[in-house]
Design a binder for these strands. Structure first.
Length: 287
DNA sequence: CGTCCACGTCTAC
DNA sequence: TAGACCTGGACGG
């Protein structure tokens, strides 16, 4: 999806577009199989992200509070193509599947592929802390659980496990592992023990993507910058994912993993078996 | 036209 | 650990 950086930007976008606005009603596109959402009081919206989850806090609009403030949390996943868009009255947005209404426009959840989901609830307990906004808890969650079987798997796959790396997706794992000097196919436990910089990279690479306004891949568009600005910064940032000079391999989950082909050097078994950076790999990174 | 591919979960043999 | 869930863009014949 949208990964960690895009979710954070999405939350900010929602907050910016909904600030001071009073909503009255929600409509679900019948094309979408998701749950019907009914909000039968005038409300305000506030968004927050945690990894790849987005929480919309729905509460009674201040001017309409009579007895008590109602507060509900609508939890959203963006799927592969989900994003929000402010839609002015009169215009129709294709692939809008959940629409929050005001008199001056609507906030639309737009999702071409319809993998996005929503439900009333709270943060999913099966997903870890956010690597940017709750870094210490994120690191602790992994360190405290390194003995678990999940960490037997190669680090490139472990980074996709949302229980430990909430928010890291296919492009972030590639960019994170490219920036550390470690065999991406060694076990997660060994990699995280020998190379704790992986934790810092999860935060800093995600932050970099966030600063650049997120990925301009397919449907998702950063609403705050021009396409030219996005493209320049983004192509400088994307060193590995989608780069034809890199190697790729299908992981056990059927996702294409992008990595530095230096780790394919077979005559230098040292790097594969010990997991330590080969001299070539090291030289490659430092230059 | 067709086939492959895409920032992600889910659930069912 | 396959598939299922989806649309549409890129590219091949």
């Amino acid at each position: 999806m949208p990964e960690l950086a895009e979710l954070k930007l999405t939350a900010e976008y929602v907050n910016k577009m909904t600030e001071g606005k009073v909503f009255h009603g929600v409509a679900k596109n019948p094309e979408h199989k998701g749950e019907e959402i009914t909000i039968d009081f005038p409300f305000v919206i506030e968004a927050q992200s945690r990894g790849k989850e987005l929480m919309l806090t729905i509460s009674t609009a201040p001017d309409f509070v009579t007895d008590q403030v109602e507060v509900k949390h609508l939890m959203m996943g963006m799927g592969m193509s989900g994003h929000f868009k402010w839609v002015k009255p009169g215009s129709v947005e294709k692939h809008a599947h959940l629409v929050f209404k005001t008199d001056t426009g609507t906030l639309a959840f737009v999702d071409v592929r319809r993998f996005g989901k929503w439900k009333w609830g709270f943060w999913n307990k099966d997903r870890g802390p956010d690597p940017i906004s709750n870094y210490q808890a994120f690191v602790k969650n992994v360190i405290d659980n390194l003995h678990k079987k999940d960490f037997d798997k190669p680090i490139c796959e472990v980074l996709m496990n949302q229980r430990w790396f909430n928010g890291i997706g296919n492009y972030l794992r590639a960019e994170i592992l490219y920036r550390v000097c470690i065999d991406p196919f060694m076990s997660g436990r060994e990699a995280l023990t020998k190379c704790p910089e992986i934790f810092e990279e999860c935060k800093s690479v995600s932050e970099m993507a966030y600063q650049l306004g997120g990925g301009e891949l397919k449907d998702w568009k950063n609403p705050f910058e021009t396409i030219e600005e996005i493209n320049q910064g983004w192509s400088d940032f994307m060193l590995c994912y989608g780069n034809p000079k890199m190697a790729t391999k299908m992981d056990s989950n059927g996702r294409r993993f992008w990595y530095d082909p230096i780790w394919n050097i077979s005559e230098d078994n040292w790097c594969h078996y010990s997991g330590m950076p080969s001299p070539q790999a090291y030289a490659n990174k430092v230059k």
